[in-house]
Design a protein around this nucleic acid. Structure first.
Lengths: 344, 344
DNA sequence: CGGATAAATTTAAGCGCTCAAGTAACGACT
DNA sequence: AGTCGTTACTTGAGCGCTTAAATTTATCCG
């Protein structure tokens, strides 16, 4: 029971194989009635095109490469974001009959650029998606650009490179989180900044200030401290903030790990969360749901971002009008248990 | 700068393309000197075969499909195991010039079997790897078998199906964990069983009993309670166990979530871990490292399992002798902070 | 050393598709 | 009526490789 080929379809429909090809590829210049005939033949034979033959003949693979930093290279605990990206990319690929090639790689490796160049040479993908933090490394983006392969950057926060970029609205959503805390009744809202290397952090801090301003609350410098994205730094920052008098009624951390650190300190100090202190994080890592109380946080729209990026590449490979250089996908606030109105 | 083809190599080496093909595919019947010439030509041109052309000509794709349960389909929090599997499969594939096609799917969907059958028809992979829990669903395994596509099951614990299976040694390693607890000085070691649907759970319980017996410790039924794999059930079980007098000095849970529940209860009751109570889990989910104290647990060798499975399929597709029906990859005990000698 | 056998290599065909180029049919316009 | 343009299709070549069959070259044995 060999699988039907385009010839079988053409014979059954009484047309040439090129016409079948036209129908399959949704090309114009096929009469409605002919298209119907072909579609029926395809359905009755259960035909689906052989990807290898297509690729061979068309000189490019119907394939998107998704490149991301390999978490298992250094025991990174949170890998959920990768699954989310894969999910989005897969969704777009499946819809369009493309395949997804995943390529985790270690950004600390000096030869990543060369590695990617070689990979591209091998598989000739229709496009390549580069996730953060690799997407923020000019050397890597340049290496890919040099191959002329269409490339989309996935960026959390920063977006100052010339390539097509799908980014989040970190600033806006951080402002929204701040306003949400205000809406609960909070007035003394502290902020923990993270690693200054990460562009996203700056945007989140800006959003925090925006949110305060829009709510008519004065920005107080002593309510802002610097962490380095780790749980430990979150603990240190929390200790510092909770010593203040009056102490803040809410702490908004630039990422979930630091928020987890805050929660740890609060628990240790016997401060009840959320009754006495509200805590909000950012990123919605899996830990956020597993903590007790579960963390109110900002969910990054990773899946939607990857889907958008894939679709842009797929459409681009079909010669559709290439979309804008910068596309922003909004994140969303996940309200969970760690936030509540402040004590009276 | 078009990429070099087999013809270019053949011309440069002064042989026919078939000879180049022989060299590339490591086929026999090539003189050493000829092989050298070809290898040099390949190196100097930077040649690598076009996968699509190979697939087209050879009627099968150099491609392994990895099928697993889609965690994002129902907000499953722990996705680290998928990354681990992907890592192992990728390692094997890269080594052999294969590609990896990932295929998350929802096992609760009635049509998974059909979905997989169609996928196989589409891509004609060299083999397919099915991860638990799908690998334990006869309907799914049967659907794949029907396509005659080589298939390897990845199984945590159970292994009573006829297909090639890569499994863990749950029973042995659980026994080892039990002996480890005994070696710390524990004598009253409780066990929390999990969801009875999961075959692995039974094996782990058997391992617990083996470990006790090998250590010459009597099995006490009241030290064993049934959970359902959730954190909440772990809490309930812990409450029950910690009411006993004398209470157990160690609790070994059949998975990490339940162990996390135990830890939660202990903290609530003011029982210091590990000084007053040792806790051990199983699976090494990312939560295990994030808890305080970090959980001693059993790490599943997911990466190694997926690598073994991939290699078996790749070798099989090359006509190498197909390996045994059941291959067991040992897990390993991760000693962290939640276990210590019992109080005097 | 000749003929048979095995080893090394070439030749020819074709995998299933796309792409560029070509052809037929039909109107519309001068 | 003849030209042109457009639409709707067909034709033929060829993508880069593998496979099977054909051919050449090396090796063995009496």
């Amino acid at each position: 029971m060999p699988r039907p080929t385009i010839d079988d379809v053409a014979t059954l429909a009484g047309v040439s194989i090129k016409t079948v090809s036209r129908v399959v590829n949704r090309e114009p210049n096929v009469r409605e009635s002919t298209r119907d005939k072909v579609d029926k033949a395809i359905a009755s034979l259960g035909y689906s095109p052989n990807p290898s033959a297509r690729n061979l003949a068309s000189h490019h693979a119907r394939l998107i490469v998704l490149v991301y930093d390999d978490p298992s290279a250094y025991e990174a605990p949170s890998s959920g974001y990768i699954i989310n990206m894969q999910e989005g990319a897969l969704k777009a690929c499946r819809k369009s009959g493309f395949e997804l090639l995943i390529h985790p790689c270690n950004y600390r490796n000096k030869d990543v650029g060369k590695e990617l160049t070689e990979l591209i040479g091998q598989v000739r993908p229709a496009g390549i998606i580069v996730a953060a933090p690799l997407s923020n490394m000019p050397k890597i983006v340049r290496a890919i650009s040099a191959t002329k392969t269409p490339c989309v950057r996935l960026s959390i926060g920063s977006a100052n490179v010339k390539e097509y970029t799908v980014a989040t609205n970190d600033r806006d959503i951080s402002a929204e989180m701040t306003r949400y805390l205000v809406s609960l009744g909070h007035r003394r809202i502290a902020f923990i900044r993270g690693n200054k290397q990460h562009k996203a952090v700056g945007n989140r801090f800006d959003g925090y200030r925006d949110g305060l301003q829009e709510s008519g609350i004065a920005y107080l410098e002593k309510l802002v401290v610097d962490g380095d994205n780790s749980i430990g730094s979150g603990e240190r920052c929390a200790e510092q903030l909770l010593k203040l008098n009056p102490r803040p009624t809410a702490i908004f951390a630039a990422n979930d790990d630091m928020a987890a650190g805050v929660l740890r300190v609060a628990t240790r100090l016997g401060i009840e969360v959320p009754r006495e202190l509200s805590i909000a994080g950012c990123d919605d890592i899996s830990l956020a749901q597993q903590l007790y109380p579960a963390l109110t946080t900002i969910r990054q729209p990773l899946s939607a971002m990857a889907e958008t990026a894939s679709l842009a590449l797929i459409d681009g490979s079909r010669g559709r009008p290439s979309a804008p250089m910068l596309e922003t996908i909004p994140g969303s606030i996940q309200v969970r248990e760690s936030t509540a109105p402040p004590p009276q």
